[in-house]
Design a protein around this nucleic acid. Structure first.
Length: 423
RNA sequence: GUGAUCGUAGCUCAGUUGGCAGAGCAUCGGGUUGUGGUCCCGAAGGUCGCGGGUUCGAGCCCCGUCGGUCACCCCA
């Protein structure tokens, strides 16, 4: 084996085995997503897969893992520091600011789908290049926008057949809330430092809230007694959370409030949410997102609120029931003489123009082999053209399920076939 | 980045204490001078991931390396 795909990547290819390698499943997600976004009135954004590295540092936070150890960095020939995008939100916000969309009617609702890159070790449901579908709503602080975004995520997953899903919801308050809560939490954790796992201990100074994500039993035992952010929320944040809850109930999205839900990115404020599936492995988050009311301003725009989600297409496919593919060809051409190939090609071309799915043998197969191929491609009909048919300017139409055969006029071309197959 | 585990035909996998590289499925052909799904026969298909080492001899033992899988960290 000479070449392999780069570490942590995968191919979508004809005959792909795993769900995320199957082209027809990707086609389905794209179809479902586009249809849903049209109904919710979101317009598409197509953005570069690389940006100035600085953009991601400013957005995700200098201390975040994504920035410190997971970015694919490179320098172009002009000496610019660039990075393959590790997430979608910063690019969308940059675009919103760059094109002055804050001056348009608000909110601006957009969606995107494309590859994201993170330099990390892969495991089930995690790749160095993975595809995210995301939405961002910029310019409105309305809690009902949060409801719309969460319900959109939920419906996307539901339509795709994601199994065993639970939506978790929390409110992290504004920066002020956190500036009161975090010292309190840190103080508490410090008192129990001896019982924490090494990773959590290391996080104590930098970002104690992420201790909640630890999978260590000992650490979780300590956290059972820890102060929760709910008690520190401002009236505003509390009202926002309850408005979101009422909204989710109104639109019929099941959810659970989880006060221990924290998110890894620095820019989140107020609402955060995460959709998890029991059908995945350790990486069980299918999609997640939250509000980022300070981000637009931090990136040089006006003080505009925003909210969005990102969801991993590979994880959607992994967590969904892959439906059996039933569709096949309308016609497979069996050519039994070299002179039959051109008339077959011409007829196939006419039938394709009429919308029929057709294919021919390009492998110089035997008669038996060509019928076998007709069978494999699930063709409804085989059209046989050989010496006998050519001599009479005819073709033989074989119904592949009944075995019934009819002789048609080859000279008449597509209309005769269309009539016989009942289109 | 850390740890565990696995790399043999396109796929799934056997391969004994180190002794001639195998099976099933898939592919192609034949049985049927032009008829598929079942059946029978045959063919083709391999630097045993790669590089070193030990040995008379390595798919097998040792070291390194690359890659896959799973978990941690983190995240979609």
């Amino acid at each position: 084996m000479s070449y392999r795909g780069p570490k942590g990547t995968y191919d979508v290819y004809p005959g792909g085995r795993d769900p995320h390698e199957r082209p027809e499943l990707w086609a389905r997600v794209e179809r479902v997503a586009r249809d849903l976004f049209r109904r919710y009135n979101y317009a598409e954004s197509r953005l570069p897969v690389f940006e100035e590295a600085e953009l991601f540092v400013r957005s995700s936070g200098e201390t975040s893992d994504i920035v410190t150890k997971e970015m694919f960095l490179f320098t172009d020939k002009g000496g610019r520091e660039l990075a393959l995008r590790p997430e979608g939100t910063p690019g969308v916000v940059r675009s919103y600011i760059e094109h002055g969309l804050y001056g348009a009617a608000q909110p601006v609702k957009t969606w995107y789908m494309g590859p994201m890159f993170r330099h990390e070790r892969q495991q089930k449901g995690r790749y160095r290049q993975h595809v995210q579908i995301g939405v961002e709503v910029l310019g409105s602080p309305d809690p009902l926008v949060d409801v719309e975004v969460i319900s959109l995520l939920y419906n996307l997953h539901k339509t795709m057949g994601v199994r065993d899903e639970v939506v978790y919801l929390n409110n992290l308050g504004d920066f002020e809330t956190r500036s009161r809560y975090v010292p309190e939490l840190r103080e508490f954790l410090r008192r129990h430092e001896a019982d924490l796992d090494p990773d959590s201990r290391a996080r104590l100074d930098k970002n104690p809230m992420r201790t909640f994500d630890s999978k260590s039993k000992e650490t979780q035992a300590v956290l059972d007694e820890a102060p929760l952010i709910g008690e520190f929320l401002s009236d505003d944040a509390r009202a926002h959370l309850s408005a979101v809850e009422k909204g989710l109930e109104a639109v019929g999205v099941p959810y659970r409030v989880d006060e221990r839900l924290v998110r890894g990115l620095d820019y989140y404020t107020m609402t955060v949410f995460e959709a998890k599936s029991g059908a995945l492995g350790a990486q069980d988050t299918v999609g997640a997102g939250g509000r980022y009311n300070g981000l637009v301003e931090a990136l040089g725009g006006p003080d505009m609120p925003g909210i969005g989600f990102g969801t991993g297409v590979e994880r959607i496919l992994l967590a969904a029931n892959a439906p059996p593919e039933e569709d096949g060809l309308d016609v497979y051409f069996v050519t039994l003489a070299p002179e039959a190939r051109l008339p077959a090609m011409a007829l196939a071309s006419s039938l394709r123009a009429e919308g029929l799915r057709c294919d021919l043998d390009y492998a110089d197969r035997s008669a038996k082999g060509q019928f076998k191929q007709a069978d494999r491609t699930n063709a409804r009909f085989a059209i046989v053209i050989g010496d006998e048919e050519l001599a009479r300017n005819a073709l033989k139409l074989r119904d592949m399920s009944s075995g019934e055969e009819k002789v048609l006029d080859l000279g008449e071309g597509a209309p005769a076939v269309l009539r016989a197959v009942g289109v």
